[in-house]
């Protein structure tokens, strides 16, 4: 018998509790404070939470305005190289402004195999959902230009549309289950990277991005 079978046999040999009713699934509303309201309320909630976590929240009426926001915040970042995921939403924003498009590398996902991310100051990705209750950003690798683009550069910018804001993690996870079942990697990002390992003093930018900005379009 190999170790797999031995372990499973041992587990099967243990007496099971007489009955174990299937556990209640998450009664979200009973546990957490409500996070309802119209989309404007949810957006405000998301923005407030993200800001509280020392992330930046920007709103843009349309892709054109988004391009301006992007130009402004990437300019702050003192000329470091900038890489973006070739996502339709990001493309449509970059198309609005030539100067912006010039400053941002938009490699073909196929050739992304081993870019030296250490050279980049800024990574721009799309997201799947924004979670109002926690200020969380849900993204999966295929939609975010891979597993590294959103974590290696010190400044991570997320572009999203207003219809991507959901109330709760519960809702976001339910939607992920429906839509991206084959995806290999997903991350829920809640604020810029931080550590409290030295005397519980919070320091941003431990290993991941020190700066995190969300630009919400619409």
């Amino acid at each position: 018998m190999n170790s797999r079978d031995k372990i499973l046999a041992r587990l099967r040999a243990t007496p099971r509790p007489a009955e174990c009713a299937p556990a209640h699934r998450l009664a979200d509303r009973a546990i957490y404070h409500d996070c309802d309201g119209g989309s404007e309320e949810l957006i405000a909630r998301f923005g407030a939470r993200l800001t509280q976590l020392q992330g930046e929240f920007h709103r843009a009426a349309d892709v054109k305005a988004a391009a301006e926001v992007l130009l402004r915040i990437t300019d702050d970042s003192a000329g470091g190289r900038c890489i973006a995921h070739a996502h339709p939403l990001i493309r449509s924003v970059l198309d609005q402004n030539e100067r912006l498009a010039e400053g941002i590398e938009l490699p073909d996902p196929g050739t992304l195999d081993s870019p030296d991310f250490a050279q980049y100051e800024i990574g721009i990705t799309a997201a799947d959902y924004l979670v109002a209750r926690t200020g969380g950003i849900v993204l999966h690798a295929a939609g975010a230009g891979g597993r590294r683009m959103s974590v290696l550069p010190p400044f991570h910018i997320v572009l999203a549309r207003r219809d991507q804001v959901v109330s709760s993690l519960d809702e976001a996870l339910a939607r992920i289950r429906e839509t991206s079942s084959g995806s290999g990697y997903g991350t829920i990002i809640t604020g810029p990277s931080r550590t409290g390992d030295i005397e519980k003093i919070i320091i941003l930018g431990a290993h991941g991005p020190k700066r995190l900005a969300v630009v919400l379009i619409g």
Binding site: D113, S114, A141
Partner: peptide, 24 residues
Amino acid sequence: GTAQAMTCYASIVRGPRQPDEADG
């Protein structure tokens, strides 16, 4: 664990680099 509503990152990994993925 750390008195946070959520940790900064919660990563969900399903296997090595998939065909539609850029890296991993």
